[in-house]
């Protein structure tokens, strides 16, 4: 197990050593002084090399950033932002996943966890006047049986004017419950109010990066 050296101890040792090295320097042979100069030059060139490398690496890292607009979603604070380079173009109040669990009473072992997925995604689809295709859990939540007919799953008018799919059935869409924006209440999708949703729709395109944390 490592013991940590104490800072005051090191400082004190440093202070004690410093005057001694000063006193020794004039009495050194000329060759040694030349060696010291050469050492200093080597140090300087090493530092320059390190600084140049540092700048190059920073540049390389900066190039990994999305080229155009990108969307950032903070699920803890329920905020969605659109950013281009370092400029924030929009910050909107959102609703994200509730984190709750729903068990299927008819199929033991089947359950849904209503989390907004975290990680990096891309906008895969942009829809206008979207129609919600209700999944099984939506019927279970309402205490209804799961329909066998696909037509009974369609529900228009609940997702707002636009929906932007970012994979695995998750969307950024509108809401009928604007009063709940800022809270973790959804089944995993990201809800926005009408104005913000329109702005996000306008500023995004298929392929826009979405970072969710």
């Amino acid at each position: 197990m490592k013991c940590f050296p104490s800072l005051p101890l090191l400082v004190l040792v440093g202070i004690l050593l410093l005057p001694a090295s000063h006193l020794r320097a004039p009495s050194e042979a000329e060759g040694n002084v030349a060696g010291l100069e050469s050492h200093k030059q080597t140090d300087a060139s090493e530092s320059s090399r390190l600084v140049a490398r540092h700048v190059a690496l920073q540049h390389q890292l900066a190039q990994q950033a999305p080229a155009g607009h990108y969307i950032v979603v903070d699920t803890a604070r329920n905020r969605l932002s659109i950013i281009r380079r370092q400029e924030v173009l929009l910050t909107a109040l959102a609703s994200t996943g509730s984190g709750t669990i729903l068990n299927d009473p008819d199929r033991p072992g089947t359950r849904w966890i209503f989390d907004t997925p975290r990680g990096e995604f891309t906008i895969q689809s942009k829809l206008t006047n979207p129609i919600w295709v209700k999944p099984d859990w939506a019927f279970l939540e309402e205490g209804l049986g799961i329909p066998t007919d696909a037509e009974h799953r369609l529900e228009p008018g609940v997702l707002g004017d636009y929906a932007l799919g970012f994979g695995k059935g998750y969307f950024i869409h509108g809401t009928l419950y604007a009063r709940l924006l800022g809270q973790n209440v959804t089944h995993g999708c990201i809800r926005l109010n009408d104005d913000d949703l329109q702005r996000v729709y306008q500023l995004s395109k298929v392929g826009t990066t979405v970072m969710i944390f």
């Binding site: 509730s98 984190g99 709750t100 669990i101 729903l102 209503f114 205490g143 809270q183 959804t186 089944h187």
Partner: peptide, 20 residues
């Protein structure tokens, strides 16, 4: 680990979410 509330049918999902 965090204790996840169980959703029950006909419940308001806004009642008991996991928050920060």
């Amino acid at each position: 680990q965090v204790a996840r509330p169980k959703a029950t049918p006909l419940d308001d999902p806004a009642q008991d979410p996991i928050e920060l």
